[in-house]
């Protein structure tokens, strides 16, 4: 299973997950006269992809990686079953470590595994509460990259709807954990990444689906709102194909930029070391160690004992997400908030 077909299903505008009712700011841009035709729309889509598109792609890749690690078999009892539809041929115990994370990488095509190779891995056995808190943290990272409350609300609504649909299409432990962790609905890219992993996609495929939907929804909305020639608009999307690939690649690369260009000051605040937290600089060390080799990380973790192992493992995931892109688009923020004041709107966002 290399996830290609699942990727098509996931990115299809007919996926029944509520996407058709979101214009990604286009309705308000049209109302304000900022988008009046194909030329404006092309610039709108290009800018949207370079900002919100990149951010959602990176979050989706991160979520996919996390979900895959949760689904990956761990030693000992309580091993999660392989994800996938109950009827699928791939059902049954996984064949070896890392299977669920391979996605398309197993046949070695074009580096689909990018972004999955160095993640901090499955939890030390025995504690799902840790995974719940990791999902919350990743969702909080999405919050921190979404200043506009209107956009957070739209992202959570879409995430909630996607999660509802995905849990029936691709039931998995990761999706259940995510639903438990963020009951009000995770940000859409977080849900998308988790769904992608459950469908057998790799992080790069999740990123591509996120980047793709970040422009196709607004493009379709513009066709409906402005009566544009649908082929003209699809030509604009075709022109973005290379940028879409690049965005997905950049999103995954950002996951491996786990060490910010300088250490996070939060790790060494005035408060002093907190109970149960890794000491100052720990996360960066762990990140470096992780870059040096996954196996070595595991060895250290085992030696450090159970509790420290958990903390270190969590810190490694956290460190992986600090530096994810947060490209902001002030105009999109203003459009999203302005949209809420429109008494005659057709789209949710």
């Amino acid at each position: 299973m290399n996830g290609d077909a699942a990727l098509l299903l996931l990115a299809d505008s007919r996926l029944p997950a509520g996407g058709h009712a979101h214009s990604g700011g286009v309705e308000e841009a049209v109302r304000r006269g900022a988008v009046t035709g194909a030329g404006d729309l092309a610039r709108f889509l290009r800018g949207r992809l370079a900002t919100a598109g990149l951010v959602t792609a990176a979050l989706a890749a991160a979520a996919c990686e996390l979900a895959a690690s949760e689904t990956a078999p761990v030693a000992g009892p309580g091993t999660a079953p392989r994800t996938g539809p109950a009827t699928g041929p791939a059902t049954g115990p996984a064949t070896g470590p890392g299977t669920a994370m391979d996605g398309g990488g197993r046949d070695g095509q074009d580096g689909w595994e990018l972004g999955a190779a160095h993640d901090p891995g499955a939890p030390p056995p025995g504690d799902t509460a840790d995974t719940v808190s990791l999902w919350r943290r990743l969702d909080a990272e999405a919050d921190a990259r979404t200043a506009s409350p209107a956009q957070r609300e739209a992202a959570r609504l879409q995430g909630r709807l996607l999660l509802r649909t995905a849990r029936r299409m691709w039931p998995s432990a990761a999706l259940d954990t995510l639903a438990r962790a963020v009951p009000e609905g995770p940000h859409h890219p977080v849900a998308l990444g988790a769904a992608a992993a459950s469908a057998g996609c790799a992080p790069r495929q999740a990123a591509l689906a996120a980047a793709y939907t970040s422009v196709t929804g607004p493009a379709t909305a513009a066709v409906r709102l402005l009566g544009l020639d649908p082929v003209t608009v699809h030509r604009l999307l075709a022109d973005l194909a290379t940028a879409l690939d690049d965005t997905a690649r950049a999103a995954c690369a950002s996951l491996d930029d786990a060490i910010p260009e300088d250490d996070e000051p939060e790790e060494c605040g005035h408060q002093g070391p907190q109970p149960g937290r890794p000491p100052a600089g720990h996360a960066a060390e762990q990140a470096a160690e992780q870059a040096a080799g996954h196996a070595a990380g595991h060895a250290v973790e085992h030696a450090a004992g159970h509790v420290a192992g958990h903390a270190a493992w969590q810190a490694r995931w956290h460190a992986r997400w600090h530096a994810l892109p947060g490209h902001s688009a002030p105009a999109l923020d203003l459009l999203a908030e302005g949209h809420l004041t429109n008494p005659m709107k057709l789209f949710v966002s």
Binding site: G47, T51, L332
Partner: peptide, 22 residues
């Protein structure tokens, strides 16, 4: 230690210049 706001702002890049979204 919890993320409050993480943002990148690009200026003068071809992708974002003159975009009504940015």
């Amino acid at each position: 230690g919890r993320p409050l706001l993480r943002q990148d702002l690009l200026v003068g890049e071809e992708t974002v210049d003159d975009s009504p979204a940015v």
